[in-house]
Amino acid sequence: MDFISILSIFVLACFVGYYVVWSVTPALHTPLMSVTNAISSVIVVGALIAAASSGSVQSKWLGLIGVALASVNIFGGFAVTYRMLAMYKKKER
């Protein structure tokens, strides 16, 4: 992919983000933060590439540490969001 296509995706995604986030109800702003935390750990993709390749030992170890850190976030972020969302209940009528 060339730089311009990547930039296009980025700019459009910013707009999508803008509209999607404004539609989030304020009551769920804390779960919003924890779930954005979890998904921004998609950076694990980069860490996996580094950890998987055999070219450089330092790079491999940096990648492995990166995988571990991002995993804390992925599992922790989704789990804590799940736990919070399960608490929101409607009035029993």
């Binding site: 992919m1 990547i6 995706i9 980025f10 700019v11 995604a13 910013c14 999508v16 983000g17 803008y18 999607v20 986030v21 404004w22 702003h29 919003l32 933060m33 954005t36 935390n37 998904i39 921004s40 998609v42 950076i43 993709v45 980069g46 590439i49």
Partner: peptide, 24 residues
């Protein structure tokens, strides 16, 4: 990092999270 790795998932996510934090 998504730009560096040419990775769509990272770019979309980064833009989402970036906007989200900015709006909050």
């Amino acid at each position: 990092m998504g730009f560096t790795l040419h990775n769509t998932a990272m770019i979309i996510t980064g833009a989402l999270v970036g906007s989200s934090g900015a709006i909050l």
